[in-house]
Write a protein that binds this DNA or RNA. Structure first.
Length: 557
RNA sequence: GCCCCCGUAGCUCAGGGGAUAGAGCAACUGCCUUCUAAGCAGUGGGCCACAGGUUCGAAUCCUGUCGGGGGCGCCA
């Protein structure tokens, strides 16, 4: 595409200048070009001259002029160049390059935006991974939106991607036993016994529901059961019920995992023991106070961590070490974990465990997203899982819809806290940003329907006379369309799925602007045809974009 | 005490070495006999928390201070 050709032209010019002895620098300089914010600064702009100034020991503008002088304009792409400001080189291209973009989009369709930039990468994306003791919360939903969108982005770069949910189902977890106890209480209460829910029990009504389901299936069989046996059974049943519900909640949110990975399975299969043994063999453990410790400080952690308790049971970090080893053993070469803010303390120790096991810690990327606050009428809606007044992801989806929920949870950088304005997300009106974007798509669809009704033929991109597209709103819109593939790669590799919401807003704005200023179905048949080709391309890109965000692209609104 | 994130318009936040700092919401003013006004155009609104430093160039990088949030277990 045009951008690569400009980069190549600069590189060749640099080498030519070096060969002539006009510039001195070593290696091949990284040539970066960008789309300038200001349209008057051309189609692309480069700062190489300034970046090279020190090494070449020449004023930036001088270098820029030297580069410009050795770039030919005869290749049909570059119209003219300008040295501007402190030493920017601005490239003004012949409009044909933009028309090629429309041809490319028409040719690639749903695949427009794909690349092979990530080919050969086998990514395991682990996200959500909530404890199986309640419905998926809105906070976990943020992790879900981020993880799933990141997965879609990586897929577009040609990487192989697996979405995985790590189930924290280790036996004897105090949380889970407590959860099981709560279920027992509800079960007995439902059957008329008067016992109190303990202070630290799970108050949510979903526990009552599980109790009712058990009664519906098994009646009062468990009333007379041995209490300890019953607790074990109920803990397991509570867990199974929650996992099933979580699966359903997430599917409703547009997320389907390739694998639900059980922590317990790591213990049962002996993999946790193996991992601890391997750490021991490699000399990174020691015993103290009857416990086995990992020398995680050897790998940058600020203190050593217990792997096996003095009572002989392995800790969470031991299982985590085994889990990450297992991921690598399954052939993945890039592990991405999307974790909530309460896990930030685990980054150093997890990476330490990975390194101590002999894997590359650099192949593990851990993304911590910050808290979500639900806001209603300017007030924070408080949430506590145990108190039972959580607003679940499922409730949020029912309240505002999947599209608004996903869009809002993707609007902010993962490391910013996020205020989720319920009223705004709910409002089916102009103030809601998600509708702004979807409306652009629906508007396009309406336009194309209209054309059909009027008997106007939408020409193929090849048949349209694209050179008629010369107005500013048209060119600005095409430039944005041209940027999509690169935006995909940026958002993927920088792990910034929230960029898509900004891109979506910008693309929608440029379309609306075009729509307002450029009449599509007019008297000039050739111009209408060219504009319809542009409209189709816009629909394609907007659709691809919304699909990547996991949001519907409506045909009408 | 130590660690992480944040501090940018009235509010919520993008931008994270480059040219004149942006968006949504809120406020105000225009634009529908013509393709969806869920739209467009315009106005007002900023010591980019503060202080030093690095750089040709800093909202952006470094150090420190202040303010907000989160995390620091032989819990998971």
């Amino acid at each position: 595409m045009a951008k690569e050709r400009v980069v190549q032209a600069i590189q060749q010019a640099l080498e030519a200048a070096r060969d002539r002895g006009e510039l001195s620098f070593s290696g091949t300089p990284e040539v970066e070009i960008e789309v300038p914010r200001n349209r008057e600064h051309g189609d692309f702009s480069s700062n190489v001259a300034m970046a090279l100034a020190r090494e070449a020991n020449l004023p930036p503008r001088k270098i820029a002029e030297c580069i410009v002088a050795s770039i030919g304009v005869g290749d049909g792409l570059i119209d003219r160049m300008e040295v501007a400001g402190p030493g920017f080189i601005n490239f003004y291209l012949k409009p044909g390059w933009l028309h090629d973009v429309i041809l490319k989009i028409a040719g690639e369709g749903d695949r427009y935006g794909r690349s092979d930039a990530g080919a050969g990468t086998k990514v395991l994306l682990e996200f959500v991974s909530a404890n199986p003791n309640g419905p998926i919360t809105v906070a976990s939903g943020r992790g879900g939106a981020i993880g799933d969108t990141l997965a879609r982005l990586y897929e577009l770069t040609g990487a192989q991607v697996a979405r995985e949910y790590y189930i924290n189902d280790a036996a004897n977890s105090t949380q889970m036993i407590n959860f099981g106890k709560s279920l027992v209480v509800r079960y007995l209460q439902e059957l008329g016994q008067s016992i109190e829910m303990p202070e630290d029990g799970y108050q949510g009504t979903y526990v009552n529901q599980i109790a009712k389901d058990i009664i519906a299936q098994h009646g009062d069989t468990y009333v007379s059961m041995d209490a300890e046996e019953r607790l074990t059974l109920f803990t397991r049943m509570a867990e199974d019920a929650m996992i099933a519900q979580q699966k359903a909640d997430l599917e409703e949110f547009g997320i389907v995992f390739d694998c639900w990975f059980s922590e317990r399975s790591l213990h049962d299969s002996g993999k946790v023991r193996e991992a601890v043994a391997k750490l021991d063999e490699r000399g990174f453990t020691y015993e103290k106070d009857g416990a086995v410790w990992l020398r995680s400080t050897n790998f940058g952690d600020d203190k050593d961590r217990a792997l096996v308790r003095s009572n002989g049971s392995p800790t969470y970090i031991a299982a985590d070490a085994a889990y990450h080893a297992d991921k690598f053993e399954r052939g993945f070469n890039k592990l991405i974990n999307v974790w909530g803010p309460d896990h930030h303390g685990y980054i150093a120790r997890t990476k330490a465990a990975v390194a101590a096991l002999g894997y590359r810690a650099g192949d593990v990327d851990i993304l911590i997203y910050q808290a979500v606050r639900l806001m209603s009428s300017g007030e924070v809606v408080m949430m506590s899982k145990r108190a039972g007044d959580v607003i679940s992801l499922s409730e949020l989806v029912q309240e505002v819809g999947k599209d608004a929920a996903r869009y809002f949870l993707l609007m902010r950088s993962h490391d910013s806290q996020l205020d989720f304005d319920l009223e705004l997300a709910k409002s089916q009106s102009e103030e809601n940003p998600v509708y702004y974007v979807q409306y652009a798509h629906a508007r396009i669809a309406a336009l194309l329907r209209n054309a059909e009704e009027r008997g106007v033929v939408v020409p193929t991109a090849e048949d349209a006379n694209l050179s008629l597209l010369v107005d500013e709103p048209e060119l600005d819109l095409i430039k944005k369309l041209a940027d999509w593939p690169e935006e995909v790669a940026r958002a993927a590799f920088r792990h910034e799925p929230h960029r898509l919401s900004a891109f979506a807003t910008e693309l929608a704005r440029l379309f609306h602007k075009f729509y307002t200023e450029c009449r599509v179905l007019g008297d000039d048949e050739a111009l209408s045809g060219a504009r319809l080709a542009l409209v189709s391309a816009s629909k394609q890109v907007l659709g691809n974009l919304l699909h990547t965000m996991g949001i519907e692209a409506p045909e009408r609104m």
